[in-house]
């Protein structure tokens, strides 16, 4: 009897482990963190790309209903790819797009914008990358959608925008009200 209980327990454990590992195999390695708070709490100051003034992010996001914070750099190839999508988003009235220029040279960044167009209402620079880390970013490109009134993060994309993400963003912005 004791023997049977032992057997059943061991086999049960093995079977459970089997199914857990099986499920683990089908998981993708893409990871998006659960945010402990979706409230935005970044109050760091950053310098503008086109002037020497400084501003906090709070001041930047106050204009419209929604803001997108987009982290980009001229040396980042995927940023080039996602740029047309940002330009596309620019046409939305309720939306305000803020660029954070990540670990870049000012000349290159300006050249990039001149070449590909400027979707951003404002661009601040982040030469050391610290501000991006404070935002919880992983690297470039990264896009964060914020509700300006409630000051909460609605959506976060790691990696370049594409058609699917663009549609998703538009739907969120449309449906929120």
């Amino acid at each position: 009897m004791v023997k049977n209980i032992k057997l059943i327990t061991v086999v049960f454990l093995v079977i459970v482990s089997f199914f857990i590992l099986l499920k683990g195999l089908n998981k993708t390695n893409n990871y998006s963190p659960k945010l402990n708070s979706s409230k935005i709490d970044f109050n760091f100051k950053a310098k503008f790309l086109y002037s020497d003034e400084e501003s906090t992010l709070y001041e930047l996001i106050n204009d419209k209903d929604y803001s997108i914070i987009n982290i980009w750099a001229s040396w980042c190839l995927p940023c080039r790819e996602e740029h047309p999508f940002l330009l596309n988003l620019k046409s939305l009235d309720k939306l305000n797009i803020i660029g954070i220029n990540y670990k870049d040279k000012e000349i290159n960044a300006k050249k990039f914008i001149k070449e590909l167009g400027n979707p951003y209402s404002k661009i601040v620079v982040d030469p050391s990358g610290v501000n991006s880390i404070e935002l919880g970013a992983y690297g470039v490109p990264e896009t964060i959608l914020i509700n300006n009134n409630s000051k909460t993060i609605l959506k976060k994309y790691i990696g370049p925008l594409d058609n699917k993400k663009l549609d998703e963003l538009k739907i969120i912005i449309k449906n929120e009200n």
Partner: peptide, 19 residues
């Protein structure tokens, strides 16, 4: 998936043989 199934079979088999 293949190695996992194979591993599972071997381990279960040996557990039963042992008991």
């Amino acid at each position: 998936v293949f190695i996992l199934c194979f591993l599972f079979i071997l381990i279960t088999l040996s557990i039963f043989i042992y008991f």
